[in-house]
Each structure stands twice: as structure tokens, then as C-alpha cells.
Design a protein around this nucleic acid. Sequence first.
DNA 1: AGTCAAAATGGTTGCGCAATCATTGCTGTT
DNA 2: AACAGCAATGATTGCGCAACCATTTTGACT
Lengths: 333, 333
Amino acid sequence: MSTKPNLKDVAKVAGVSAITVSRVLTDPSRVSEKLRSKVEKAIHDIGYIRNHAASALASKKSGVLAVIIPSLSNIVFNDVLQGIYQAVKAKNLQVLLGDCHYSPLEEEKLIATLLSQSPEGIIVTGAAQTDYARKLLLQADIPVIQIMELTHQPIDMNIGFSHYQASYDMTNHLLQRGYRAPAFLGARMDPRTQQRLAGFKQAITDWPQPCSSYIHTTVQPSSIKLGGQLLQAVIAESNHQCDAVFCCNDDLALGALFESKRMNLSVPKDIAICGFNDLEASALVEPAITSVSSPRSEMGRQAVEMLFSATGKGRHALAPVDVGYNIIVRSST
Amino acid sequence: MSTKPNLKDVAKVAGVSAITVSRVLTDPSRVSEKLRSKVEKAIHDIGYIRNHAASALASKKSGVLAVIIPSLSNIVFNDVLQGIYQAVKAKNLQVLLGDCHYSPLEEEKLIATLLSQSPEGIIVTGAAQTDYARKLLLQADIPVIQIMELTHQPIDMNIGFSHYQASYDMTNHLLQRGYRAPAFLGARMDPRTQQRLAGFKQAITDWPQPCSSYIHTTVQPSSIKLGGQLLQAVIAESNHQCDAVFCCNDDLALGALFESKRMNLSVPKDIAICGFNDLEASALVEPAITSVSSPRSEMGRQAVEMLFSATGKGRHALAPVDVGYNIIVRSST
DNA sequence: AGTCAAAATGGTTGCGCAATCATTGCTGTT
DNA sequence: AACAGCAATGATTGCGCAACCATTTTGACT
């Protein structure tokens, strides 16, 4: 076969009509066993592959799920993606994945591009979409779900947890442990990091006894190495008064831990360290790092379920879902 | 607009013909400045988004790049993906990403599914495709590139490096350092891990002086924790004779390092540790871990370039590309 | 055997767009 | 002023498939 075979070619080989072949592909139960096996053999023999564009156009079903995440390199979104792919596998869907690099404008462009594929649903991260992006999403008339964080004005569905509250709790944990000069180390400063910072500030404000606090942030992307640099910076800045660092994620926390060893600071005696996201390494380093865990892959899985169980097809088909979080206390605090 | 707007709706609003709108979208230079701005305004006003299925069907161009990786959770493929996304961004392509979970059969199914989207090129990982998958890829008549490793019978294009040779070199490094009882710790045992094991074995065989060696592998997925367990296992198995461990990747190596501390083994005095892939953490732990680095994201970027610079459209449009590797010697050996 | 309902199969059509060809308008040249 | 030559725009058509409706076959029952 020099040119790509189509339905008719298969039909000819199998000695049936084109529509019968189509049925074998979309709903085999509607074709008799005899014809079905003939058709399946023909398909396999000539290596026929259905033309998705034509199929999508005729059926108005694309079999595509659009997903937009802020970063491919952040392992956190990987976990979510895994949950998404797991759920999608049982559903005969393909995933179109976009990386918007934490930029709402890039996200807007991506949304437009991905919507052109007529996805049957779309997963976006966070709630910082531009107005135009929101308009496009609403108009697309497909289920939309915002994941990772909770928002008061969801576009449609929403699943996540409160980064603010988790951070508030974690800061309280430090204060309860007796640390009175905690620092918040933040990188990237995307919306969720900012919520974490807000939770930190509020917890300090709400604490009944006086305590000092330090905040050191940068818009640089997060990394282990940066964690070490931020630790140095805040220690210098605070004139060695800082006695605990709350890192906005575990990468920074790991970097801070490694750096503290180089600086001959004992953790948690000289300085406590805690992070966010509970990466595998955090539990295995010495001392193990206190962190906030959340069911990321479960959240991805559930997001897909919610998208496609929304029978009503109306907006807000399901109430926002709070997947919660856990403060995992370890020896670093 | 109750139903999704189409080209005609835009045309009506802009007071032009449908085809003119189409041209604004595909090649604005072919439309006069005056009409173009009218059309663009109409598009934005009614929030029109082109129907990709129809466009793909009519133009026989899908604007899609298919990518299959063996695992979403392995950070190594993340790096490659980043390179791919970076290169793709400049090319108006969307990425359809599949995760075949290290299974050639799942990969075959994925290839069939992804090919149905008429991608303009496809990136697959490794060279262990099934015969039927190879047939489908050849028949699809699109550029195909196998990445990560080098193969003698590429389907079409190929970019990667020799895991066998890298492992051979690393093992020699250990032997040259004076270690005479190295162990190979392997997880997952996918084709590339097996090539690394083969390189290890050959280096041991080729070494002029007698030396003992140990091999401990499992098909379990790799993790930091598993690295610790494998270290324990090989130390017990070797009756404490083993003096160096070559971990098939840096996750295992980190786990082995953390575990060695718990076992009160000094690295590299009591035991040397080296890994593969050169993750960020490997350079920052204490002692820093010797590893094999390779230009992963560059490989992804280049794969995309190769796919779409293949003007000839024939098979083997470009010679296989060896991106090479580097043994990064650090204090763990 | 005859009847009828249900299952299996086929023919026709349109999805929304871009390729192709056709037409119109516009500029510069003599 | 006449015309060539090109740029800009429009009309028609078909991409490959599945929805829809029509027809044929099967099988259960009297």
C-alpha cells in the first residue's frame, strides 16, 4: 500500500461496507462475530489506522483531554500528571499537555490552541487565568477543572487544597516547637507560593507571644542549590538570629539542609528546617525533613473523574473538592 | 453566540468571505492589512477558535508531534521533554505525549493511537519496539526518531548515546581508583539499564588484574529508598567484601549514600558510590556523587530539529547522532 | 411454514475547513 | 488610454469518517 489506507480500503479487503468497518472500530458489539473477525484481520493485515481528524469532525468527539501545567520540570506536577494519565487510560482519551511556564499570558495562548482541538475537557492549574482565557473556557462548553488550589470563583469545577491554611499550620508547628525567629524562604513566587507566604505571615501575626520573623524571596525558579543560597542569605540578613526556616518547597528545604551541614549548623538544634510537598528524598535524608504532603496523583486522578462524571453538562456540576494535606513532622524540626 | 462559532460566523461579522478568514489564520501575509485587522477583531470579539479536526482533515496537516516515553515519573525523561517542548514552541506544534510504562506492548498500542492523530513526526524512546509497531511507524510515512540510546537498526532517525560505553568507562574509573570488588545495583532493568549492566560486566572482564564483582538487580521501579535496600542486600550478600557500588541511576545512588550513613560506612573510604544521570542532588549531597551526565534536554531539542529538518522525507534522512556523555568524578569515589 | 420483531448491514450525507481554480481590483508602463 | 502583470479576494469542492435512516437478514414463536 503506497498511500495510507482508509476505511474503504479495509472494507474492500474484508468484503464489507465502509460503515461496517467503522462500527468495528467504534462499537464492535454492533457487528456480528463473523464479520468482525474478518474486518479485524483486514485492519491488522494492511495496518490500517483510523484518521482521527475525520473521525473527530464527523462525530464531534475528539477523544482528547487538554491539560495545562505551569512547569514540566517541577516534580510536583509530574505526580499530578501521573494520576491524570492513570485515570485517562481507562477512558480512551489522549492527553494534550501544555506547559505555560507559570505565565498567564502563555496560558491564555495555550488555552486557545488546545481548545482548537475540541478537547472533551480541560484541566488547568490554579486560578490565575486571564479574563479572555476565562471567556474562552466558558464559551467552549466543555467541563473545565482548576486544580492544585481552592478558589472562590471557579470557572467550573475545582479540586485542590488550601496552601494558605497548610502554611499557617506549618508555621504554627514551628512556633509551638519553640522557635521564635522563623524565616520564610520563597522562590518563583507563583500564586500558590504567595498563598503559602500569606499563611506564614498570618500565623506570625496571630501568635500570642512576640516573635520575630524573616522573609526572603526571589522570583528565580526553585532548585536545591537555591535553597542553600537562600539559607545563607537569611542567616546573614538576620545576623544569625533566625532559628528556623520554612522553605516554600522541599527542593529549597533539601538545599538548605545540605548547606546547613556545610555551615556546621546542627539541624534542628541550631536551626530547624521544614518544606512543602513531601518529596521522597525529604523522608530519607538525615535528619528527615518536616513537610506538607498532599495527595497529588490522587488529585489528578480525581480531576479526570470529576470532569467526565459531570452528567449535567452545566457549569459547577460538582462542588469544589478539598483534598486536604498533612503536616508530616520529622526530625528536622 | 449559543453554539460554537465557525469560520462563516466570523466571515459574516467581518463582512468578508470564509476563505479570507481562513487565510488570516494560516497565512496573514496573504490578506491586506485592512481586511486582516477587521477579521482579527471579529475573531477576538466572538472568541472564535478554529476547529482543528476540520483543519487537519482539509489540509492534511495536524500540527501534532507524538512523543512516547517509558515513564512520566522518571525525572530523566522530564529533562528530555523540556527540550522537546522548547523546540516545539517555535514551530506551532502541539505535543501528544504517551507514557508506555516501559512496556513494548503498551508502546505498540500507543503508537497506533497516536498515529491516528496523523502526527507530523514521532519521537519514541529506545529501540525495543515490537515488529508491528515498526511496521506501523514505517508505513505512517512521517519522520520517526528513536532517542536516548544508539541503535544499529534505526527505524528512521536516531539520537542518543551509548549506555554500554558510559557504563564501561565508569566501571573502569572505579577499578582505576583501586576498588577491586565493585557491585552493580540495578532496578527496573529496562533495555538501557541492561546495556549499563553489560558495560559493567565487560569492564570487569577486560580488567587485567583479578577482581571480584557483584550484581544485584530487581525489576522493581527505581527509587531512592530502593537504593538503600539494594545497598544493604549487596553488602550482606558479599559478606562485606564489596567496596564500591555502581548504581544504575542516581536515585539508587542517593539512597545508597543515605543508607551508608545509617550503616556508619564512610564514603568513599569504606565504600565508593557512583550513579548515572547526574541529577541536581548528586552534586549537592555530601559527599557529592560521581555520575554520568548527558545532555538530555539538548537531546530532546535536537530530536525535534532533526525530525523537521529532514527535507528529503526519505528514511534515514540524517545519520544517527551521538550526543555523548561525561563521567563527572566527585568525592564519592 | 408463516409471521413479526430485532439484529445486522448498507447507502447517503454533512461535519468545518483549506486546496484549487476563478475572478476582481490595482499598479505601473508605454 | 490601453494593457500586462500581479496582488487580493471569492466560489467550489473534497478530505475521511460517523450519524442518520433504509434495507436486508436472522431467529423466535405460533
